[in-house]
Amino acid sequence: MILTLHLIALALYGVATVLALAQFVGLRSVPRALLIALPCAGAAVHVVGVSQLSLVGFAAGLSMLALCLVLLSLVSERLLRGSAVSFFAGPLATGLLGLAILTGLAPGAEPSAGRNAWFILHVALSVLGVALLALAFIAAALYLLQFRELKSKHFGQVFQLFPPLERLEQLNRFALIAGFPTLTLGVLLALGYAARFAGGLHVGKAQIVWGLFTWVVLGWAVWVRVVRRWAGRRAAFASIAGFAAVLLVYVALKLAQPGAERFL
């Protein structure tokens, strides 16, 4: 049942992504209502699928991340009135969900110290935080592409289909500033959960060091945005650096300590 629900969601996300990208490569544009309805239906099925998963493990984490991305992408679609965010979020969410299915989705084991509010909040906030940072990255990438289009006076598909610079800037700013404390709170809840219910923190030194490094890079990206009031291209590059740090450190740690039983 879990697999079937995820496969249905994957198919709906896939079709929505193909339709969104089709107009970008110059094919006939699809009604906006359909571009919203398909991922909405996919997300509805996906929610049911995720609710049957334990919140532990690599595949479950990827599935939840994909779901958060789709939901954030739909919210952005509503706010920006353009499907440009889905050009990036669609393939990313579809890829993450596909990877989750390939890795093996199953009800899985319960967390060692049991599932309680601390644990659920930790997972929810961490996944939401990473999804928001991914959204900030996407908005920054769209900003840079639109900026280049406007500066070079190309007026092509990017000019036509991407949202205005200022809206992308606002989306990037919101997602970064909301994503950083959300992720931080998620990590702090993990520490609290481990200390109170699991008898201490069971993570390696590398995870602590690189985790802190990622946190500092993200903190710097938020600091230059909020305190130094960076805007425009510099702010977009800072966001991209922050998300790249999250991604690279995660991949490096996963390569150093492979296994699908834990998300990190």
């Binding site: 639109q146 406007l150 000019f159 036509q160 949202p163 205005p164 610079l165 200022e166 809206r167």
Partner: peptide, 20 residues
């Protein structure tokens, strides 16, 4: 009806792509 088909409205469209 997509896009803008006169220079004056193109000016508005270009400004709109910067400022929303």
């Amino acid at each position: 009806g997509m896009g803008t088909a006169s220079a004056a409205s193109a000016a508005v469209a270009v400004a709109g792509k910067i400022f929303g």
